[in-house]
Design a protein around this nucleic acid. Sequence first.
DNA 1: GTCTATACCTTGATAGAC
DNA 2: GTCTATCAAGGTATAGAC
Lengths: 247, 247
Amino acid sequence: MAKTMAQTAADTADTTQAPPQGRIRRENVERILKAAERVFAEAGFAGATMADIAERAGLPKANLHYYFGTKDDLYRAVLDNILRLWLAPIASFTPDADPAATLTAYVTAKMEASRSRPHASKVFANEILHGGTQVERFLAEDLKALVDAKAAVIDGWVAAGRMAPVDARQFLFMIWAVTQHYADFDVQIRKVLGRRSLTRQDFDAMTAEVLRMVLRAAGLSEVQAAEPQTPAPQAPTPLQPESPPIP
Amino acid sequence: MAKTMAQTAADTADTTQAPPQGRIRRENVERILKAAERVFAEAGFAGATMADIAERAGLPKANLHYYFGTKDDLYRAVLDNILRLWLAPIASFTPDADPAATLTAYVTAKMEASRSRPHASKVFANEILHGGTQVERFLAEDLKALVDAKAAVIDGWVAAGRMAPVDARQFLFMIWAVTQHYADFDVQIRKVLGRRSLTRQDFDAMTAEVLRMVLRAAGLSEVQAAEPQTPAPQAPTPLQPESPPIP
DNA sequence: GTCTATACCTTGATAGAC
DNA sequence: GTCTATCAAGGTATAGAC
């Protein structure tokens, strides 16, 4: 239950306020937010404890309450950071941009976000999964407006014959689903592939393959370059560890 | 922490054991499992309380412990049900099957699962999101073996030129990500689309669009069915060259 | 077999010394 | 501003009446 300290969290997250002794405060807030993002990602909101977060941040529990008031407020602060991160990379969708180049950049950015900020993706996924009560306005206002605008851009591309006909909103959902899957379901992916961890090279290979599928789904084939060489299609980037390449 | 009652849960889930007074027991177990799936989906493992589950099942708390021992055991029983459900629809991937027909049936089945059993999908997603400790063996053994086998089938299709070259495992990941997204992220989808709920008609339309994108990603245009009637397919053929019909 | 009442424990939050 | 000690709420699990 949200209590009364919403303004406290707002203040700490407010970058415009930079008074005297703000330096160590700022560092501590940053450490707490980072630790909280990780613990919330690993355990969910209910499963995360303030003690866990404090330990990971290397601070006493009471400090978390001093800076953020309640667990609820801390959670919202973490989410706030994530939402900002979320909206950024889609900006490049503009009517005059090249569809293939734009999609390539977007998918690459989303995959890079899944690689570098997996905890952020998981916290957001967890929030949506459980009803998204804390991000309801974000979804219904900010995100909806953004999707409406970008869907219009995609519709324009389709109308101009610059990509295959797609339902623009579902096309965006597909890109989100696929790219975020590599962060949110990393355990499943690793176990199925028999990998202990996913390296940057793995992500590069996976990104290339995701990109190929997304571009095909958009009717934008990227095979022009590597096509004429061999009669046999070049094998997709091998991700499988020991599984033999079955003929 | 799992205690000692694992065998209790195992017994109740064991269908081979059908002794005297099994009728009401069976009904109660079923009601509890159904209620638990829903509560676990909505709140996650840590957020769910035995009291919530009991209330939704219309039984006293103590009964849950009588039938399932611990909360942990109940959770595992719910997961067991879901995992069985999970593996079923992929069976139709066989070397001699038609790729387009097989993929169509599979995507349709997965979308139908997202529509009819959203709570199951969410419980599974939540489990994976938080490390998948309860399904580690399932992932590393059962699921991995299944994916290896089905990836071999897909590789065969590709080698025979019956579909575009794809990384088979990532292709399966994509299908899972996209179809399950409609259950797991339903809140986001509804808010972005401005819908209060997603009807069966919505799902039919979304399924058709997902199918179109997946088939394109596989280099399989979906026009076979509606082909003989008219020379012009209902979907305006893209001006850009699509992935070439594989030799 | 079923359910009420309760014991025990974890955890969020705070008071008050430093 | 920081941290130790403590409280109160809410949760799992069980004992024992029915």
